[in-house]
Every structure is written in structure tokens, then in C-alpha cells.
């Protein structure tokens, strides 16, 4: 591995570029992150990447924080901070600029139409990521039963989803 400053620069530039093509969300660019970390820079192998991703999924907070774990793996605390800031700050400034414009235009009919038109795509993509995560999680038929039970619980009740996540952790310890 090259010297520390060099690696931090690679993390910053790599994740900055990835954040700006992340249309559809941070998770959309996981394959791109995999390419950067495994193929381009050889920071880790595929198995380690999958482990870090699973860890970020299991932890609370935005799933995009997997970039922090990659940074941690590559260059410790400094790597974690550089990777996370590169992934969030430039894209965040862009979103802020857009939000300012939007506030000024609020109520304009064409903007309302545009926003309404994006809603089904947003919801359809939530379904889609749920299906993909279900397939990945279905290591055993009991896991599938847990996913179905959890779906009904969240859909049909007003209780906090923390209950099903806790139950999932417990049942996982027993059955998986």
C-alpha cells in the first residue's frame, strides 16, 4: 500500500465521483464501490467487501455509511472521515442549492406535477430494494417466513419496527 496521504486522496476522489453519479440513492452505486475498492485499488477482496456491506446494513443509520467502513478498513479513522465526507458534502451542497430554488418556486403547478410524477418511481424502488434484500436474506426458509411476518407487521400495525428487528435478531440466533 502506498503512503497514507496518497490513499486518503484516492478515497476522497473515488467517493466524490461515485456520489455524483448516485442517482437513485447511495445503494444504487454499490457495484461501483465494489469496483473501486476491489478491482481498481485492491484495498480488499470481494468477501471482505460483502462483510463490510452486511455490517453497514445491520448498523443503524444511512446504508451509505458503508463508505465509512471501507475508509476505516483502508486508512483507519482518517479514512473513515475522508470517505464519508467525500460521499456526503458535495452531493449535499447540490441538494441544498436545489432545495433553495424549490422553496422559491413552491406552489408552481409544473413543479407540483413533476414532484407527483416522481412519487410512483420512489415507492416502486422501495418495493424493489425490499425484494432484492429479501432474496439476499433468504438463506433458509425460516428467514423468508420472518421477512413475510415483518412485512405484515410493519404494513398492518402502528407499532415501531424495532420490535420486528429485535425479534429477527433473536430468531436468527435460534434458527439461522
Amino acid at each position: 500500500m502506498s503512503d497514507g496521504e496518497d490513499v486518503l486522496g484516492q478515497l476522497a476522489i473515488g467517493f466524490l465521483a461515485i456520489s455524483l453519479i448516485a442517482v437513485g440513492g447511495g445503494i444504487a452505486v454499490v457495484p461501483e464501490m465494489n469496483r473501486l475498492a476491489v478491482d481498481v485499488h485492491g484495498w480488499m477482496d470481494n468477501a471482505r467487501f460483502a462483510q463490510l456491506f452486511a455490517l453497514a446494513q445491520a448498523a443503524p443509520g444511512p446504508n451509505v455509511l458503508v463508505v465509512g467502513l471501507i475508509g476505516w478498513h483502508v486508512a483507519g479513522l482518517a479514512g473513515m472521515l475522508v470517505a464519508t465526507l467525500a460521499m456526503t458534502v458535495p452531493a449535499g451542497l447540490l441538494a441544498f442549492g436545489f432545495a433553495r430554488v424549490r422553496t422559491r418556486l413552491a406552489g408552481a403547478r409544473w413543479l407540483r406535477t413533476l414532484e407527483m410524477g416522481l412519487v410512483p418511481i420512489a415507492v416502486g424502488l422501495i418495493f424493489s430494494s425490499g425484494i432484492i434484500l429479501t432474496q439476499a436474506a433468504a438463506v433458509h426458509w425460516t428467514a423468508l417466513v420472518m421477512t413475510i411476518g415483518s412485512t405484515l407487521f410493519v404494513w398492518r400495525t402502528e407499532f415501531s419496527p424495532l420490535w420486528v428487528l429485535g425479534a429477527g435478531a433473536l430468531l436468527g440466533a435460534v434458527f439461522l
Partner: peptide, 25 residues
């Protein structure tokens, strides 16, 4: 094992949320 169980429940949480939004809208 605990991570696998949590992942299965979390997938259901995402599906349930999408279903809830759809039925509400």
C-alpha cells in the same frame, strides 16, 4: 446468525413501508 435474522426482518420492514405508503396514497 443475529445479523442474518436482522437482515431478514429489515427486508420485511422495507416491503411493509412501501405497502403502507401505497395503501395510504
Amino acid at each position: 446468525a443475529v445479523l442474518a435474522g436482522t437482515a431478514a426482518a429489515a427486508a420485511g420492514m422495507i416491503l411493509g413501508t412501501a405497502a403502507k405508503i401505497t395503501t395510504n396514497l
